[in-house]
Design a protein around this nucleic acid. Structure first.
Lengths: 340, 340
DNA sequence: CTGTTAGCGCGTTCAC
DNA sequence: GTGAACGCGCTAACAG
């Protein structure tokens, strides 16, 4: 037991010396290549365990230039739900494949901010990247990445660039489902509050519109909102004064909750006077009074699919180009047939 | 424009050749060390931009033996709120310091699972780790990490190992605040639903108990629950049958919401019949009806502090050992003086 | 002020 | 089957 002040991590040479063999032999034993005398292999393994040796991954990836690290690039998002769960899905799948994930947050969609995030991500020896493009910054980041780097987009499919790989949630199907459901309940039409989507039309909105058109129902003007609950509240205040609105499909759960709170504060009954539906499926919304009818998205699944797509790309056997997650309508208490 | 099939990332030598200087000169320019002729510096910068050069951090950390990557180790958690925000705080601080962040999820607190996660984290050239120990798995992971690796714990301070660095939320202060507030409102005592904490007593529970004792109030038996809303609902059902309970401090917001929903379903008025308080400060709880009185925790700040602690450790100038975030009581509608 | 030399720890050629 | 030599990309030393 030496009382050395500074501890130096054991390297391959230390193991070799301890086992009485040469450095390449140790390497061969640990990487399972070629034939090695069983006796030597045993001695090497013993030495590894004895010294607590771990390969220096910096040297390893430098030598191999075949990284087992991928990067997730995402915008800092107020709503943590989809973000956290997608990330979890990616990480779980990556871990199964023996790969690590790094994460880089883009603080805003300003060019400088995007550039800095991309630089940071690329400073690591990454083999590929998954861009969470729930918003504008993600899309910008995807474009700033070098073309040589395998990239897959994961998100709602706001902008489905042709050549690129993507794991998408079929938001249009979700928007259609919820709208059709409300029409079947007897509502003459369904109003819609949409979140900001950087100039594009979201799948949610698209699905809502086509469902109304297909049913021959009137298509009301889209109400534009932010994604947060307070903006939803403001729209709720306005809706409270209108008696032509009997059903509202909100762009996400936060907005829906804001609307419901505003209506409740004004004594308007949900779903008696107005039906409200959300989008996302945050766990807490089932506890609301009334509990929220919403379109659930399996973000964990989205993350897994995004990783699988990237993984097949890294292995060069890319047959699939997109992978689509189907959202699911969950009917709860906040929707009902209209009163009259 | 050559149509080369396989693209090789430019390295220092490429930049040097393009700028007509030697490799170390480029290195000096980029790292700002020593004096370099302005003219050469200009040429180097131009070449860097031209070629899109990015430093290879694997080679860099190999040479410097000082990695610019840290790892976050966390258990997969059902509640994404604290997790996502702490992570965001860490990443933001790391980015400002030019460091990358990798993330490793521990799927459960079983030894094998912890070991695999730790191995994976260590397979990257990391300079340190931040363990999110909101739960048992995190604590186990922290212990499985080699002693030579700088580690800081971030969390509620369940187990404050003596020697280790930690960024903590002063949960006890939060528990005390909310309990004292309820007593001041006129409640004879405050009941408490606690989440699972792996055998330890959480700061929330500790703060609650001391507040009651200091006030000379009766200390009711702790109600043991899971962290999720459904478990809260079950306790709500039982509480509904008791008339000795006038105020309940719940271990987190989910539990509180579950309790409130159960009470509402049984026609019991909150806060008229029973006052309910939560812990965490999830954004949505302000929209509830009634909106939830809770103890807000600044998880983003927690993450920042955890990184700062790790960073100072990496630079060898470790004066601080712990950094404490003070939670804040936010009074809303779910609490009121008792009826009688 | 600049270029040459050396070596971080590893894995893969080669000879033996 | 095993060991010696080389190089991945970078930066700390030195020499000029």
């Amino acid at each position: 037991m030496s009382s050395s002040k500074s501890y130096r991590a054991p390297v391959l040479a230390d193991v070799a010396k301890a086992a009485g063999v040469s450095v390449p032999t140790v390497s061969r034993v640990l990487n399972g290549t070629k034939n090695v005398a069983p006796e030597l292999a045993r001695r090497v393994h013993a030495a590894v365990k004895e010294l607590g040796y771990r390969p220096n991954s910096a040297a390893r990836s430098l030598r191999l230039s075949q990284p087992n690290l991928i990067s997730i690039i995402a915008e800092a998002t107020t709503s943590s739900y989809g973000y956290a769960n997608t990330l979890s899905g990616i990480e779980t799948a990556a871990q199964r494949a023996g790969m690590s994930v790094s994460i880089t947050i883009v603080s805003s969609d300003e060019d400088e901010s995007v550039m800095r995030a991309v630089d940071l991500a690329l400073s690591q020896p990454i083999g590929g990247a998954i861009v969470l493009e729930f918003n504008q910054a993600g899309i910008k980041a995807a474009k700033a990445l070098p073309a040589s780097l395998p990239v897959v987009a994961a998100g709602g499919g706001l902008e489905r660039t042709d050549g690129s790989l993507a794991a998408l949630i079929d938001e249009a199907a979700g928007g259609r489902q919820v709208t059709e459901f409300l029409l079947r309940q007897g509502h003459r039409t369904v109003h819609h509050i949409a979140g900001p989507t950087g100039g594009k039309v979201s799948g949610r909105t698209e699905g809502w519109r086509t469902a109304l058109q297909d049913a021959g129902a009137e298509v009301p003007a889209v109400m534009s909102s932010e994604w947060d609950a307070l903006s939803g509240y403001r729209w709720g205040e306005r809706i409270a004064g209108r008696d032509d609105v009997t059903a509202v499909f909100c762009g996400n759960d936060e907005i829906a909750l804001g609307v419901m709170r505003a209506l409740a504060d004004r004594g308007i009954d949900v779903p008696g006077d107005v039906s409200i539906a959300g989008f996302d499926g945050q766990p807490l919304v089932s506890l609301w009074r009334p509990s929220l009818t919403t379109v659930e998205q399996d973000f964990e699944d989205l993350g897994t699919r995004a990783f699988d797509l990237l993984s097949q790309q890294l292995q060069g056997k890319g047959d699939l180009r997109t992978s689509v997650v189907e959202p699911q309508l969950v009917v709860r208490e906040s929707t009902a047939p209209p009163r009259r």
